[in-house]
Simulated scan of single mutants.
Amino acid sequence: MKSEDILNKDTLRPRNTSAEVLAKEEEKGDGKPQSGNFFGLEWDKPGSSSPWPTFDQFPEHLRVGPWSYSACIFLVAFVGFVVLSASWAYDDLSKLRDAAPASFQIRMLHGAGAVYMTAIIAYTVKNTGLWPFVSYTAISYGLLTLRFGFICLGLQAAAEILRFPVVAMATVTSTVWWLVLFPIILAAAAAEHRRAFLRMNFSVFLLNMHLFNLPMALASQWSYSRALCFLDFWVAAVVAMLYLFFYLLVMDANGLHLYIILSPRPWWCIVSYCGILLLYAQLHRFFGS
C-alpha cells in the first residue's frame, strides 16, 4: 500500500473483496473499515507477526457511533478561546525579539541536530512511507526539526514562534506515549505479539520520536533563554486545535484510531482534552518561569 493512499477508500479493504461482501458491509452501516488495513492488510490475517494490534480490538463504543455532547461543547469552547484571544497573542509579537541572539556555537549545534533529525525523517519515509506523518508524534518531530534549522540559519522570529510548541509537543509525546498509550497498546496486543511490540519500541524511528525528541527539545529550549508570553501558549494551542480537528474529522472518521483516548464518543473525552490542554498550561508556566 502506498503511503499517499492511506486515506483512499479503495485501500480500506482487500482488492479481491466480492460484491456480496461489500453489500453486507454497506448493510451494517457503521462505515468503519478494519483499522489494521492502514498498516497493510496482511497485519489482520491469522498468524500475522505484526506487533501492532488492529484498532478494532479497542472497544467498539470508542470507535463507532455519534460524538458525545461533551466533545462538541469542548470543541466549540476551544475554537472560541483561540479566536477571542488572538488579539492578546498579537500584542505579544514584539516580545519575540526579547531573546538574545544565539551564539555561533549554539547555531552550529542546532545545525548538526537539524541534519541528524532530517536524516531520521528521511530514513522513516524510505522505510515506512509518509503515513507516520499523520501522527502527532511525527508532526511534533518535524516542527522540532524546523526549529533547529531556523536557529542554525539565524531566523530568530521563526525559531521563537516554535519555541514553546515544540517543547510542549515533545513533552506530551513522550509522557503520553510511555505512561498512557504504551501500556494500552501492550495490553491490547495479542500475547504472541507483545515481545515484537517491545522490540519495535527500540527501533530507530520510535526511539527518536518517542524518547530522544524530549532531551533535544529541552536542550534547545535552555540553550538560550527568553521569557515565555501568552503568544507562545496561543501558538501551541492553535497547533493542538488544528491537529485535534484533523484527527477527529479525517483519521478517526476513517478508522485510523492512533490515539484512542481522543475518541469523541464517550462523555469522558472532555477529561482527555482538558487534561492535555491543562498540561500545556502547566508546561507554559514551568518553562516560562
Rank of each mutant, 00 (worst) to 15 (best):
L84S: 09
A99P: 03
G154H: 02
P14L: 00
A227E: 09
F55S: 09
G80E: 13
V125T: 10
Y123F: 06
F148I: 04
G149C: 00
F230M: 06
G275Q: 04
C274N: 13
A119H: 04
Q57P: 09
P266T: 02
S220F: 00
M209G: 08
G142A: 11
Q282F: 14
V82Q: 04
T137L: 01
F233L: 10
A157R: 13
L41I: 11
L206N: 14
T17V: 09
I139A: 13
A102Y: 15
G149I: 05
A227D: 06
G40W: 01
L258T: 15
T171Q: 05
D5Q: 13
L206M: 07
G40D: 02
R199E: 14
P215F: 11
W267E: 13
G47F: 04
A112R: 00
P59I: 13
F205Y: 11
A23S: 10
F150L: 07
Q156K: 15
I161T: 05
V83L: 04
L84E: 12
L84F: 12
S35R: 02
D232E: 09
I185R: 01
M209E: 07
N8P: 01
V83Q: 12
L242S: 03
N213S: 09
I151A: 12
A168C: 15
V239K: 00
V166I: 15
I276F: 11
V271A: 09
R63H: 06
I185A: 05
R63W: 04
D98S: 12
L84Y: 15
Y247G: 01
M200R: 07
Y90L: 12
L96V: 00
I270L: 05
L93R: 09
I73M: 05
H61N: 06
W177Q: 05
L146V: 01
A19Q: 15
I261F: 11
I184R: 00
L84N: 06
W67I: 08
V115A: 05
R63M: 04
H284N: 07
S203E: 03
Q57R: 13
A196W: 01
F78G: 01
L218K: 05
C274V: 15
S70K: 04
L162I: 09
F148K: 06
A71W: 12
D30L: 06
L179V: 13
L228Q: 03
I73P: 00
